[in-house]
């Protein structure tokens, strides 16, 4: 669309840009700035109404993060679980996603529904079922249990993205490679895998971030021994008396990596993969 149909001419576009950036700053940027400020509040001076900005800033809360063991532990726990969950999801989703994306399956409808179910089902319902099951299996309150429950909710996204990626490879390219003498293994190594790499990367990223963020299932299955960053954040915000300053620190620790990853991956995280993950019920 080189000619905009909604607003013709440059002034209209600048107005539109202005509108978008205003809304974005109010809705997205200001909350982020306030979040950062909270993490920098000087605990001795505090930040009480009606001050619009904190009277003085310090890194005390960040130092506390190193000093308060639970924050450091939660951080380690989150970044221990996320890669394991990502690896597990990738291992499980690759063959299944390949089959869904490239093979003629008879029960396709049913399979798709099964894969969709964990995305649709409220986490609390799954947590109720898995919680009691894991108690019996002795997996409750263990890292292994948390890895397993997180995989339940994240695997479907991975499968869908992998399937969409494999589906997107034109049959002609595969035929051309075979025609030029590629037997199955070189075909996979030189053609199929390079072509699906962006999709697999997107899926992995999605899963990694998803694992960092997952709360409900981790909370119910892992409580109180497996404490990830979101579980700790919940405690700071509501569970006990709310500690905004620590909450802000944990928030930043959770947010910064995901936002950086998102900007880095914007080009690979194409619309299609996101839409494949969320969209198309």
């Amino acid at each position: 669309m080189n000619r905009s149909w909604i607003m013709r001419g440059a002034p209209g576009r600048w107005m539109l840009a202005l509108g978008f950036f205003t809304v974005a700053s109010v809705v997205l940027i200001i909350p982020l700035i306030v979040g950062v400020l909270w993490s920098l509040v000087d605990p001795d001076a505090g930040w009480f109404p009606p001050a619009i900005v904190p009277p003085s800033l310090s890194l005390a809360n960040w130092r506390a993060m190193l000093a308060v063991p639970e924050i450091g532990q939660a951080f380690a726990m989150s970044f221990l679980i996320a890669p394991i969950v990502t690896a597990l999801c990738a291992a499980l989703a690759l063959p299944t996603g390949y089959a869904l994306g490239r093979r003629q399956l008879r029960a396709r409808r049913t399979i798709e529904l099964l894969v969709l179910a964990p995305i649709i089902l409220p986490g609390i319902v799954l947590a109720t079922g898995l919680g009691s099951m894991f108690i019996r299996l002795g997996l409750s309150h263990t890292v292994a249990g948390v890895v397993l429950v997180q995989t339940v909710v994240l695997l479907p996204f991975m499968i869908r993205i992998v399937a969409a990626t494999f589906e997107g490879v034109p049959q002609d390219l595969i035929d051309a490679a075979r025609n030029l003498g590629a037997s199955p293994w070189p075909l996979a190594r030189d053609v199929l895998i390079p072509l699906v790499r962006p999709g697999l990367f997107a899926g992995g990223l999605f899963t990694f971030i998803g694992s960092l963020e997952e709360f409900v299932l981790t909370f119910i299955v892992g409580m109180p021994y497996v404490q990830t960053l979101p579980v700790l954040l919940w405690a700071y915000l509501g569970g006990r008396s709310s500690i905004f300053t620590y909450a802000a620190v944990v928030t930043m620790v959770l947010l910064v990596p995901t936002i950086i990853l998102m900007f880095v991956a914007e080009r690979t995280l194409k619309q299609e993969y996101l839409a494949a993950g969320f969209g198309k019920v």
Partner: peptide, 11 residues
């Protein structure tokens, strides 16, 4: 065989 890992897990 291809479907087993993902679907088995979900089952």
């Amino acid at each position: 065989l291809l479907l087993a890992p993902g679907l088995g897990y979900l089952l």
